[in-house]
Simulated scan of single mutants.
Amino acid sequence: MSGGISDLDKNRVLAEWLEWQLRQVRGRIRELEISEEQERRRRERAYAAMRWKIQPQRSSSVALLHRGDCSLYETAMGFLDREEALIALAEPDIEPCQICNPQTGLASG
Rank of each mutant, 00 (worst) to 15 (best):
D69P: 07
L65G: 02
S108M: 14
V25M: 08
S6W: 07
S108V: 13
T104S: 10
Q57C: 05
S59Y: 07
V25L: 12
A46K: 13
V25G: 00
S35Y: 06
G4F: 11
V62K: 15
S6P: 01
R28F: 08
S61H: 12
L80A: 11
R28L: 11
G109K: 13
L18K: 11
G109Y: 14
L106F: 09
C100N: 06
A15W: 07
R40Y: 11
L89D: 07
M1S: 13
E19C: 00
G68I: 02
A90C: 04
E83D: 14
D69I: 05
W17Q: 12
R12W: 11
S6K: 05
L72M: 11
F79D: 05
E16P: 00
S6L: 01
A88T: 02
L8F: 10
A15G: 01
L65Y: 03
K10C: 05
P56F: 01
I94C: 03
P92F: 08
C97P: 02
C100T: 01
E39C: 04
Q24A: 10
S108E: 14
R23Y: 02
A88Q: 03
G109R: 12
A90T: 02
R82P: 00
R43E: 14
I54Q: 08
A85F: 03
R67L: 07
R28T: 02
W20K: 13
A76T: 12
R51G: 08
L8P: 00
L32D: 08
L106P: 02
Q38H: 10
D93L: 06
C97A: 04
A76H: 13
L106H: 06
W52C: 03
P92N: 13
L22N: 09
R12A: 07
Y47T: 05
Q38N: 14
I29H: 03
M1L: 08
S35G: 11
E16Q: 10
L106R: 05
Q38E: 15
L89W: 06
E31M: 08
I5G: 03
L18W: 05
E91P: 00
G4N: 12
E19M: 04
Q98A: 10
A46F: 10
Y73R: 01
R43P: 00
G68H: 02
L80V: 04
P96W: 05
E44D: 15
Q21R: 13
M77P: 00
H66A: 05
Q55F: 03
L89F: 06
